[in-house]
Design a protein around this nucleic acid. Structure first.
Length: 420
DNA sequence: CTGGGGAGGGGGCCC
DNA sequence: CGGGCCCCCTCCCCA
């Protein structure tokens, strides 16, 4: 466990240049927060590990081995406290242990992240013509084409289970870190261990959705099918008409093709004769475009250029009428308030205060009717409803009242009989 | 299935 | 403009 490899283990092809990478949690891609070493040897932030342990059969996000609660990685914790670094945004020097909270409030760091994302989304790699399709794969044994990941696994299990030939895994080879020349000694074993789940699911949901703007998230942003499918949403797993798996030719996204290729009736996505389907839609005016470039141009010339009434969140698509409201909202992404007891993070101090009461057992809000106490005023309010004959939320059909909106919704969803 | 409690999130208002 | 507070709401879990 000692040495630089005690934390995140990266595939050789993707080993980051940054010497600090060994202090980065493979889940949140930030400096470890309360690092915990799982039994498999991989280290995660304590809160990240908690998240990973939530599924019924938790697996390590790095090696896919069964995951169970680990032990505090004191060695790493110490190193994080003693290692100096500089903020990528403002260059301020600080210890790694301070970087996380600093990054949450450093506007220059946020800009630095945004620049990174722009660079990734605006300037596709120069060898884009060679970018392989990550939706369908050829079988490395018989070269049957257009198998999606699950299809490939099933196909190989069905037809090649006894085939001992060393072959290149087409799924791994298509990934940005993949080595197209690396032959798997036991491909069937590799398939079943490594590709039981989809990279899309793991990369996009775990990393992109949770930490969409982190520097380490750029590869997932660029390569994760979640993003790709938003650019190429109709790339069917089965391919069109048995054609060769099509490279995602980003260079074809000419800035010249846009509105002209629009049609009022987009062809079927599965149709091979439908390459100009309007796959891209402006988030603001909903205008459809057949190419990403067209959409980008439209946004540049029209929607983005117009004076905005709203302040847009750079992390998600939400917009606010005031900068204050936006900043408040951004806290829900950066979660600057961290509980010292369990490491859980919150957007606002009072949320943290409420959470701390769950540790201390403090219940300052008591019911005047039954003296029952609550830690949260909202919950007291909900409780007070239970003392009332006429509850706040009423069914329009049967006039029955409920103490909570959710109960009313449930009542309506399960089919109100209408009888009073 | 229903009702209730616990925990937490989001937006608005006020100071 | 930021922080504190309030209200409303949701989700999950349990009896």
């Amino acid at each position: 466990m000692a040495g630089a490899d005690n934390g995140s283990r990266y595939p050789a092809a993707a080993a980051p240049q940054d010497p600090l990478s060994r202090f980065l949690c493979p889940v949140c891609l930030e400096v470890y927060e309360s690092p915990v070493r799982a039994p498999c040897g991989h280290v995660f932030c304590a809160p990240c590990l908690q998240e990973c342990l939530k599924p019924k059969k938790p697996v390590c996000g790095v090696c896919r081995s069964t995951l169970s609660p680990g032990s505090t990685a004191l060695d790493l914790e110490k190193q994080i406290e003693m290692t100096e670094t500089a903020c990528s945004g403002c260059n301020k020097k600080m210890y790694l242990s301070k970087l996380r909270s600093h990054a949450a409030s450093c506007s220059k760091y946020q800009n630095y992240i945004m620049e990174g994302v722009k660079a990734v989304t605006k300037e596709p790699p120069c060898n884009t013509r060679n970018v392989p399709n990550r939706f369908t794969f050829p079988c490395p044994y018989c070269s049957e084409r257009n198998l999606d990941q699950e299809g490939l696994v099933e196909h190989c299990k069905k037809y090649h289970i006894m085939d001992a030939k060393q072959v290149v895994c087409p799924i791994c080879a298509s990934m940005p870190w993949g080595d197209p020349n690396y032959r798997s000694a036991n491909f069937m074993d590799h398939l079943q261990r490594r590709h039981r789940f989809s990279y899309d699911t793991f990369v996009v949901w775990l990393l992109y959705d949770k930490y969409p703007l982190l520097p380490g998230c750029c590869p997932p942003l660029a390569w994760g099918a979640g993003l790709l499918s938003s650019f190429f949403p109709e790339e069917p797993a089965g391919g069109a008409g048995g054609a060769e798996p099509k490279p995602l030719d980003l260079t074809s996204l000419s800035s010249e093709e846009d509105e002209g290729s629009k049609t009022s009736d987009p062809p079927s996505p599965a149709s091979p004769a439908a390459p100009e389907a309007e796959k891209f839609q402006c988030g603001q005016c909903r205008k459809p475009y057949s190419t990403f470039a067209g959409l980008a141009k439209h946004r540049q010339l029209h929607c983005d250029a117009q004076p905005r009434k709203a302040f847009s969140c750079k992390y998600c698509e939400k917009e606010y009428v005031s900068l204050g409201a936006l900043k408040m909202h951004i806290r829900s992404h950066t979660l600057p308030c961290v509980c010292k007891m369990c490491g859980k993070a919150f957007s606002r101090p009072w949320l943290l205060q409420g959470h701390i009461r769950t540790h201390t057992g403090e219940k300052p809000f008591s019911c005047t009717h039954c003296n029952r106490a609550f830690a949260d005023r909202s919950n007291l309010r909900a409780h007070l409803q239970t003392h009332s004959d006429v509850k706040k939320y009423q069914c329009k059909t049967c006039s029955r009242t409920f103490s909570r909106m959710s109960l009313l919704h449930k009542h309506e969803e399960t089919g109100c009989s209408g009888t009073r």
